[in-house]
Write a protein that binds this DNA or RNA. Structure first.
Length: 281
DNA sequence: GTGGGATGGGCAA
DNA sequence: TGCCCCTCCCACA
């Protein structure tokens, strides 16, 4: 679940219940015991999402930082506490509500300085209202790296995961191996605004839906299960737009999906180099 | 019922 | 490069 949109949703829902309240924080499995002791019985000032990171502000130098990673899960509800289940890293509660966290990649207490350092390291987040797309676009335009790698690099742009990478590139008709520096600013601005649109739409019926109704085999009504994505997890299946078989390959440890026909191979650099001197004469 | 894969990312080596 | 985290979901039996 956790691509950036889900993290923003968690931040908003949890804020409604917990912001401004004095909370009990504990660590049922003991692994976060020291951190929990630093936070418990303090007032939570704010919960904010930046990319895939969540920050809970419990006052100066008491910044709870959570990153769900691949397995992390939240569960929440109204008091009383639910039946114990699984291994519980963190639990936050007041008299009315509880929140449980299992299996996160990160759950730690940061100083204000550490929090600032972390935030300085990550690129703009399309879901943050004050995010500056130029920062990401400049980085992409300076890089020979493939756009498929740059979109997943949280220091370039934050909040995009494997599903949105695949679907954004399809919708932009960009091959994932296109070098960043060969993509026009106009095209990157469109990619940014499409990221905002898709990620704001977020989950529909607990699914990420990226297909336009007119491109679906069943254009009316709710998207069927098999028609929520153009290419993500559709290896070998016909493209909804052109009918070609969707391609897949392993790339930097993750699976990359694209349509070879709608997203043609980038022009090889040799032919550009050859034409450049001629054009300048 | 079971087992493999996945929406990440940090860290040791 | 591979391991960790140790969840949820789905395809398959």
């Amino acid at each position: 679940m956790p691509e950036g949109n889900e993290l923003h949703r968690h931040a908003n829902l949890q804020s409604d219940w917990f912001t401004g309240r004095i909370l009990t924080v504990d660590a049922p499995n003991g692994r976060f015991a020291e951190g929990a002791a630093l936070l418990s019985r303090r007032k939570l000032r704010a919960i904010e999402a930046y990319g895939k990171h969540l920050f809970y502000d419990f006052g100066p130098n008491r910044q709870l930082h959570v990153h769900l990673g691949l397995y992390g899960k939240y569960r929440s509800g109204e008091m009383p506490f639910p039946e114990p289940r699984g291994i519980l890293r963190l639990r936050i509660s007041d008299k009315a509500h509880w929140l449980e966290l299992r299996g996160p990649t990160a759950c730690d207490v940061l100083s204000d300085q550490q929090r600032a350092t972390l935030l300085a390291r990550i690129g703009p987040d399309p879901l943050s209202p004050d995010a500056e797309p130029k920062v990401a676009i400049t980085r992409i335009r300076k890089s020979r790296a493939p756009i498929g790698a740059l979109l997943m690099d949280q220091s370039v742009i934050s909040g995009i995961g494997n599903i949105y990478r695949a679907e954004l590139l399809f919708r932009a008709k960009l091959h994932p191996l296109t070098p960043g520096k060969t993509i026009t600013v106009a095209k990157l601005l469109k990619l940014w605004s499409d990221a905002q649109t898709l990620m704001k739409a977020g989950m529909v019926d607990r699914r990420i839906v990226t297909t336009k109704p007119s491109d679906r085999p069943h254009p009316t009504g709710r998207a069927r299960r098999f028609e929520t994505h153009y290419v993500y997890r559709r290896k070998g299946l016909p493209c909804f737009v052109c009918g070609s078989e969707v391609a897949m390959k392993e790339f930097i440890g993750r699976k990359l999906y694209w349509c070879p026909c709608c997203q043609p191979e980038p022009t090889p650099p040799e032919s550009q180099d050859r034409s450049a001197p001629v054009a300048s004469r």
